[in-house]
Amino acid sequence: MNNKWLEKNTFHYSEFMDLNLLVEKKRDRKIKISLCLPTLNEEKTIAKEIIIIKSELMTRYPLLDEIVVIDSGSTDNTKKIVRAYDIEFYDADDILPNLEKFKGKGENLWKALYITKGDIIVYLDADIKNIHHRFVYALVGPLLLYDNVKYCKAFYDRPIAIGKGRMRPTGGGRVTELVIRPLFSLFFPELTQIIQPLSGEYAGCRELLESIPFPIGYGVETSMILDIYGEWGLDAIAQVDLEKRVHRNQDTKALGKMSFAILKTFLNRIEKLGILDIKKDTFNEMIQYYLVKDEYHPDTYKIDGLERPPIIEIPEYRKKFNIK
């Protein structure tokens, strides 16, 4: 395997700091760009994300045409805060209400395709503590400046906030290094060049995103990469170094559940591709144990591995976007 893609399609955010150029390119191509923030109880971080991005990339430089928040049923002040800053807020359940309802990040991202009008859609996690507008413009930059690039992922050094105002300088990415990278190395060595395949920040062209299925939950990033790679090739993907990202730390049990969902998505994909023949159906429950007063108690968490079909197959979507 050579590292040609890594050299050619890897960028640093500073390469896209000329925002006037990006706005000009966007105007030349007569396209719209949307930002979607999927949320679930993000009252601590959502206001800052909205304010900074709206101020810098809508008011100061008209790079973005809209920001939408799609929520999975927050019980904190997320909705109130979003509305206070004049941003469109949607409860995921209210979008395409005739379809069966599911809860999960992938569900929100999929439904964002129906709600937004952009030709490029940027997805950002809403828990970024050190949000900066580079998180958006650097993901959009390669799509605007390079014709071959249709999908761009972020990677970064990920310090973790460990409370009392202290930071641990490196960390995070445990699921990437312990689950995804070994799997990619086994089955798709070319994809190991993607430094952080599970990063929650990426941008893609609508033509691409509307044509791929979306797992409801955590598997969405893995499936996106595999599907885009399979259909359009690695050259359609780029990655950009956003340097530092500060986020909440998750405990090992939570990462275990995440890994379960990712493995399920991955196995599903390689089976479809005919790479592996799994003779028996896999189970849908992640089982973890807790020690309570010298006794081990199982804690089961159901992950069905459901997927939404490519949204272009949904009649309501075809009607809204006038697709014959």
Binding site: E43, K44, T45, A47, K48, I51, N77, K80, I81, A84, Y85, K129, N130, A161, G165, R166, M167, V246
Partner: peptide, 16 residues
């Protein structure tokens, strides 16, 4: 090395 990341809410900003 103090964490300077601020928390913005609808009516306030908090941080060092």
């Amino acid at each position: 090395d103090t964490d300077h990341n601020y928390v913005v809410k609808e009516d306030s900003i908090t941080g060092p």
